[in-house]
Amino acid sequence: MDSNKAKNLEQILESSIKDPKDLTRYLYYRKKLKEEGLSDFISILPLGAAINWARANSVWPLTFGIACCAIEMMAVGASKFDLDRFGSGVFRATPRQTDLMIVAGTVTYKLAPRIKKLYEQMPSPKYVIAMGACASSGGPYTQLGYQVIKGVDKIIPVDVYIPGCPPRPEALIDAVLLLQDKISKTIPQQEAI
């Protein structure tokens, strides 16, 4: 299973290099490192993959707890279910310094313009996790709440949805890991390089 996954990863990295001269150079250096026995200490990657690796392992979230799911988000930041070991431990208060917005709680009409404004203030590339049943689709208040928006994806685009009311802290960690997978598979924008 592991060797299959490693071969798969190598194929993905090879296919992401477009220029044939760059490809031969990459394969030559990779073979050289393996021969010298240094591939445990030095890794050679195409530039896009290196940027993705840096971005995926340091996703900084925005403190945006609205309701009950916010308490589980705080529990994930505390010491039993530590989120810091995945690189996401630094919860910033200002959207200008974050990559990730975890919408934890019910979204109402009164709060909607603020969410949109905060999302637009975050710099690209930015990601959104809809945590809990209320943020995914309205939750228990879907049919009868007159001020509740049925899911935060009516206002901003969402990358990962987490079901649960409230979801366990392990579910939030799973969502962050899924997001890291998603980030490492994207092709970084040409302007960003």
Binding site: Y109, K110, A112, P113, Y146, I149, K150, K154, I155
Partner: peptide, 27 residues
């Protein structure tokens, strides 16, 4: 509790909840 430009009084028995508010469609 409600936004300042909300129409109607929700706890009355004959209240009908709106399906759209300020452009956010909510069906």
């Amino acid at each position: 509790l409600l936004p300042l430009d909300w129409q109607g009084y929700p706890l009355r028995k004959d209240y009908v909840a709106p399906t759209e508010y300020n452009g956010i469609d909510n069906t």
